[in-house]
Simulated assay, not measured.
Amino acid sequence: MKTVNWAILGLGDIASSFATSFKAPNATLYAAGSRSLEKAKAFTEKHQIENAYGNYDDLLKDPAIDIVYIATPHSHHYDLIMKSLQAGKHVLCEKAITMNGTQLKAAMDLAAEKHLILSEAMTIYHMPLYHKLKELVDGGTIGKLKMLQVSFGSLKETDPTNRFYNKALAGGALFDIGTYALSFTRFFLNSQPNEILTTMNLFETGVDEQSGIILKNKDNEMAVVSLTFRAKMPKRGIIACEDGYITVDDYPRATSATLTRPDGKTELIEAGNSGEALNYEATALTDWILANKKDPFLPLSYDVLTIMDTVRERWGLHYDFE
């Protein structure tokens, strides 16, 4: 069987985690690229990767590379996705995959034209627990889905220069942690929300520091999403159905959930390993490449971005480089 050759673009912390956990069958980490050859060589030596590139263009010219994992700040995702697709490479890109739905639609069209896979590295779509929970909810044994409650609070140091608050790097809670909360939400909703209510607080740099978002779809399913960079809150998702609710703590890489029945009886549901979260992504993409399949979750990524587009429009939050 063919071996799928992977390359990494952007060599920060998440790239290091990806390389450390990488052990996808029928695949190898073949190359890594940075805008600094010295940094690329240090990274490849640390992770025992064969090829180092000091610029992205040279890496993308390597005909041996099948797929690139883009791990740069999300403000640079779109340009690198389009360059990678034009170079004939499949793409796995960190969240948020692009800055808006218009960008993602253009990338999806190019991927389809080139017969390439484009995918967002959203752990929620790949953790085994979520496929087990989705089967349970869709199976109807706990009644119809009615309500989702999703929170994520991450207390960030109020330094205007760091990436979390830096508008030039698309900072703000929505793009950093909100993408997880909204991906959790859209994964379980049976249709795209068509009603959106929202409000937020603005940080001094012009990005959102916290927000509340209420969603409703044509199926009368609702979701309430709470986000903040200014206070610690549980990363908790609650999936409320007519005959029971499911609580998922630490949901970005969750491996367990609790089903609570109306009579108070509980059931523990377990699947997967949080330490394998990034490797689940790499394995899925490798399998799709070998089987010539598309990413089944990319439409969800598009839906999430269009929700974020509407939310930011209501807030009046735009970035100069969009």
Rank of each mutant, 00 (worst) to 15 (best):
residue 200 M to G: 10
residue 52 A to G: 09
residue 138 D to S: 13
residue 113 E to K: 15
residue 247 T to L: 13
residue 12 G to C: 07
residue 56 Y to L: 05
residue 297 F to I: 05
residue 126 H to M: 13
residue 223 A to M: 03
residue 196 I to C: 04
residue 295 D to I: 08
residue 106 A to K: 13
residue 174 L to Q: 01
residue 81 I to C: 04
residue 100 N to Y: 03
residue 39 K to L: 14
residue 239 I to Y: 05
residue 242 E to W: 10
residue 128 P to H: 06
residue 184 F to K: 04
residue 260 T to F: 07
residue 51 N to T: 10
residue 98 T to D: 00
residue 247 T to M: 14
residue 315 W to S: 08
residue 287 D to T: 15
residue 308 M to L: 14
residue 257 A to N: 08
residue 100 N to I: 05
residue 150 V to T: 05
residue 164 F to N: 12
residue 314 R to Y: 08
residue 181 A to K: 02
residue 271 A to W: 11
residue 54 G to H: 07
residue 226 S to P: 03
residue 281 E to C: 12
residue 218 K to E: 14
residue 305 L to K: 04
residue 30 Y to K: 01
residue 131 H to N: 15
residue 102 T to S: 10
residue 315 W to L: 08
residue 113 E to M: 13
residue 249 D to P: 11
residue 3 T to M: 13
residue 57 D to Y: 03
residue 147 M to E: 14
residue 162 N to H: 15
residue 237 G to Q: 05
residue 240 A to G: 07
residue 95 K to S: 11
residue 87 A to V: 01
residue 14 I to L: 12
residue 241 C to I: 06
residue 63 P to N: 01
residue 188 F to C: 06
residue 280 Y to F: 14
residue 43 F to Y: 15
residue 55 N to A: 09
residue 288 W to N: 10
residue 266 T to I: 09
residue 137 V to W: 02
residue 1 M to L: 15
residue 140 G to V: 08
residue 298 L to D: 09
residue 224 V to C: 07
residue 101 G to M: 06
residue 61 K to P: 00
residue 139 G to R: 10
residue 278 L to D: 04
residue 197 L to C: 10
residue 15 A to N: 07
residue 277 A to V: 12
residue 201 N to M: 08
residue 223 A to W: 01
residue 126 H to R: 14
residue 188 F to M: 04
residue 253 R to I: 14
residue 174 L to I: 12
residue 183 S to P: 05
residue 61 K to M: 02
residue 72 T to E: 03
residue 132 K to M: 09
residue 86 Q to M: 04
residue 276 E to T: 07
residue 194 N to C: 06
residue 256 S to A: 15
residue 282 A to N: 03
residue 198 T to H: 11
residue 244 G to Q: 01
residue 316 G to R: 00
residue 136 L to T: 09
residue 42 A to E: 15
residue 92 L to S: 01
residue 298 L to S: 09
residue 162 N to M: 15
residue 137 V to N: 03
residue 114 K to D: 04
residue 113 E to V: 13
residue 58 D to K: 02
residue 98 T to C: 07
residue 23 K to E: 12
residue 263 D to E: 09
residue 285 L to T: 12
residue 303 D to F: 00
residue 170 A to L: 07
residue 119 S to H: 10
residue 270 E to C: 11
residue 76 H to I: 00
residue 129 L to R: 01
residue 103 Q to R: 08
residue 120 E to A: 09
residue 64 A to F: 05
residue 40 A to F: 05
residue 308 M to H: 09
residue 1 M to V: 15
residue 29 L to Q: 03
residue 315 W to H: 13
residue 82 M to W: 00
residue 265 K to A: 14
residue 29 L to G: 01
residue 168 A to T: 15
residue 290 L to W: 00
residue 23 K to F: 06
residue 131 H to C: 11
residue 245 Y to C: 09
residue 188 F to L: 03
residue 264 G to Y: 08
residue 220 N to V: 13
residue 64 A to K: 12
residue 195 E to K: 15
residue 188 F to W: 02
residue 14 I to H: 07
residue 212 G to D: 09
residue 295 D to K: 11
residue 302 Y to N: 09
